[in-house]
Design a protein around this nucleic acid. Structure first.
Lengths: 205, 205
DNA sequence: ACCTGAACACCGTTCAAGT
DNA sequence: ACCTGAACACCGTTCAAGT
């Protein structure tokens, strides 16, 4: 019965097999190195077979990005929760969530790029991709609400604080991916960023 | 005599003509839409002609990125200086510099992407590209030094403050380019980011 | 030195045809 | 429904040959 998973490659499983191969390819040689024909070859089907599952190359990349957001969302969620269980301070949880994002970036640099290109080429706000993107970043909103409730963050405009935190997080990831920060300095930067954000947005005493 | 600039297209001017065409193409349809053959066509030379000026496609992209850093450097410099002349506060100048970066991002989104991919594909720390990149971001360092001198920033680790400011700046640009921020919210975010950075890194009283 | 033209090994996408 | 094979119009890069 376990043979079912092994055998049924060309019937029903092709879509996922292609996405798996695509993710490997992308991390190895960037999105530009990804070719539909190469994927088909790697999986052992004809070069036109992928077309049955993805109308064009971009659709495959979108599906890849969507999977990425789902995984990123899980990681951020975990970072929030596990920090909670250990009864850590809110500052630690902020830092942990940013750190989780940055770890995802270093683990899957090309995938992250793919995920955040969106709006430029493709822009359908009702797509599953956008839904996944919004869902993934939800933990950040909840953390901000919690901190506001605890009196650690000024109860100002929730959106403005979200933007700030999102900018910091993505900015750090960008610095790391472009190689503009020395790897040893990342931990310090995460700590500094958390402290700066909280201090800069603390309620007036 | 002005005919010299107009005529001498295929002798001596080709390199720049290709780069100009490349920049147009890239902003119109992304780096993926850029083809050497297409450029050659647009400029009116044979498809192999570009090879006399750029050993391969990547070399052309690198040259494009280098030009981008030179222009970005000029803009940041200007943002610093012009704000100085008007005798503005240091806070205004911080904001102005970040705003200049973000404006460059919205004006040349694809070019900016190209500029900051570096380290992943290509990584020669002694290249002219890297030199241009470092030079471009110099104004930020000078601004931090100035603010430290004026007692507005804590005289801690210069590098740590640089990383923070760079992360904020690039993060905001990233939010804008990926469409994750409403355009009307950008000005507010720039103000909030400046205030948060300065407040979060102010010297202890 | 700079450019051309042919050649080679790739692409994505379409489409009739098979199962 | 899912896949194949041929076909079409593209690529980047190399290289002998021209000027």
């Amino acid at each position: 019965m376990s043979s079912t998973t092994r055998r049924a490659y060309h019937h029903g499983n092709l879509r996922e097999a292609l996405l798996d191969a695509a993710e490997q390819s992308i991390e190895a040689s960037g999105p530009r190195g990804l070719s539909i024909r190469g994927l088909a070859r790697a999986v052992g089907v004809s070069h036109a077979a992928p077309n049955s599952h993805f109308p064009d190359r971009q659709a495959l990349l979108d599906a890849l990005a969507r999977r990425g957001f789902e995984r990123l969302g899980d990681l951020l969620e975990q970072a929030c929760l596990s920090a909670d269980v250990v009864q850590s301070s809110l500052e630690t949880r902020f830092r942990g969530t940013m750190a989780a994002f940055v770890k995802f970036a270093t683990d899957h640099p090309e995938l992250l790029d793919l995920m955040f290109v969106r709006k430029r080429a493709n822009h359908d706000p009702s797509s599953q991709l956008e839904a996944a993107a919004n869902a993934a970043l939800n933990p950040i909103s909840r953390l901000i609400d919690e901190a506001t409730g605890a009196g650690i963050l000024a109860p100002g405009d929730r959106g403005r604080q979200w933007y700030l935190l999102a900018a910091l997080t993505r900015g750090i990831a960008a610095l790391v991916l472009s190689g503009d920060i020395q790897p040893e300095a990342i931990e310090t930067l995460l700590t500094d960023a958390t402290a700066t954000f909280l201090r800069g947005n603390a309620p007036d005493p």
